[in-house]
Amino acid sequence: MAGRRRVPKHGAVVLCLLLTSLVACGGRPTATDAAEADVQHVLDLRAAAVLDRDGAAVAETGAASWFQDVSAVPLASWAYKVTGVHRTGATATADAELRYQVQGYDQAPVTVARTLDLSLDAAGRWYVKDEKPAKKAPQQLWDQGEVTVVRGRHSIVLGVGQSGERLHAFADLADDAVPAVSDAWGPAWSRHVVVLVPRSLDGMAGLLGSPASSYRGIAAVTTGETGAPAQAPADRIIVNPDAYGLLGNLGRQVVLTHETTHVATRTATTAATPLWLSEGYADWVGYRGSGRTPAEVAPELGEAVSAGRVPKALPSDADFGFGGSASALAMSYEGGWLACRLIADRWGEAKLGEFYRSVGTHRKRPGAVEEAIADVLGTDLASFTTEWRQYLRDQLA
């Protein structure tokens, strides 16, 4: 019959033999399957012990020195999912996903890749010798040392190598930032923040899984999924203590309010949202009510405008890259801030928020800003850009 071919009986035997190393023809588990199941069982016991705050029970499953580092963190969940085991005799390396939630803050688990080194004990049970971030995966704060926890009215601050006094100062800043953001953006967000304060710039880089050089001079960043659903892990505001310590009181508050704005606007920020809008809006909220003039907030752009070098277009996403000059990066942030300030001055603060949300409703970047400008502001991008350029001259020249 055309299109069909008879397979000789011996072919089935060969196929069965080939599959034996993977799943055994009779359906019996292989040594690898058994090892994965055994390791999963040990990690289930380990996770339960962590949640029970039972250091002795953690020690029964393996190395437990790190337990003290994480023990102060309020956890709603902690679980491992083994994704692979690489065994060599009495030792093994396991790949796993760690899923955990900070109680009262994470609506869904944070998922991070981990690597665990194990060995068989005298009773033939797997014993965890070491646990660390998987290759290229970011560290968790407790990977860097013992975590200290400070709670504010609207915040939880987790720090390593920081005094309680300094962590309380961050909680105070975050507690002032949350109502300030709600006043500008509205109350429809979680209205609480998680702030991570590592020991140094290198610690910040470790939490982000990137080289320290990428964040030198950056006081803080916010992690989170663009356009994240409501049921998602809370964003983390990660502080660079080296750069943060150089700021004055206003600068510190502006930075925390800026980053808190990113937390509040995350669900409305999508791939369609340009950086000039997301960063400009966060700066607008940060400086809102500060009394600072455009000349004070935008000195780099002011110098360029005074010299007759008025930007021809709104900043592109590429202009916000950390690889260029500090002056050019500052001008991009200042230009975005002044674009948002223009909308608030010319059309009103409510329209600025409506414009931000309208842009984010689009799935893709092309046409998103243009349609939102037409629908919300009643103008077009070319006219808005012309008005923005004149606004720069009026405010900065």
Rank of each mutant, 00 (worst) to 15 (best):
V7A: 12
H10M: 15
A12R: 14
V13L: 15
C16Q: 13
L17S: 12
L19H: 09
T20K: 01
V23E: 15
C25R: 13
G27E: 13
A31K: 13
A31R: 13
A31N: 11
D33Q: 09
A34S: 13
A35C: 06
A37Y: 10
A37L: 08
V39S: 15
L43E: 06
L43R: 01
L45V: 12
A49R: 09
L51S: 09
L51E: 05
A56V: 14
A56C: 10
A57R: 14
T61S: 05
T61V: 05
G62R: 09
A63D: 15
S71T: 04
S71N: 13
A76V: 02
V82N: 11
V85C: 13
A90E: 15
T91M: 14
L98E: 10
R99F: 01
R99H: 03
Y100F: 14
Y100R: 01
Y100D: 08
V102E: 02
G104Y: 05
Y105G: 02
P109K: 06
T111I: 13
T111S: 06
A113K: 07
A113S: 15
D117Q: 08
L118Y: 14
S119V: 15
W126F: 05
K129S: 12
K132N: 11
K132W: 14
P133N: 10
L141S: 00
G145A: 11
E146V: 09
G152C: 04
R153S: 12
H154G: 08
H154S: 15
I156D: 01
V157F: 11
L158T: 09
G164R: 15
H168G: 11
A174D: 03
A177L: 00
V178E: 03
P179D: 01
D183N: 08
A184R: 09
R191H: 10
H192W: 08
V193W: 02
L196Q: 04
L196R: 06
P198Y: 12
S200L: 11
L201R: 08
R216L: 04
G217V: 09
A219I: 03
A220S: 02
A220R: 01
E225R: 07
G227H: 07
P233T: 01
A234D: 09
R236C: 03
I237L: 04
L246S: 12
G251Y: 09
R252N: 07
T260R: 01
T261M: 04
A264C: 03
T265V: 10
R266W: 03
W276K: 11
G280K: 04
Y281I: 12
Y281F: 14
D283M: 03
W284C: 04
R288F: 13
V297W: 02
A298K: 00
P299Y: 07
S306I: 06
G308D: 11
R309W: 14
S316P: 00
G324M: 07
S325V: 08
S325Y: 03
L329Y: 07
L338F: 07
A339E: 10
E349V: 15
E354A: 11
H362M: 04
K364G: 00
P366I: 11
A368G: 14
A372T: 05
D375Q: 07
L377T: 04
G378D: 11
S383V: 10
S383K: 03
F384D: 06
F384M: 06
R389L: 03
L392K: 05
L396P: 06
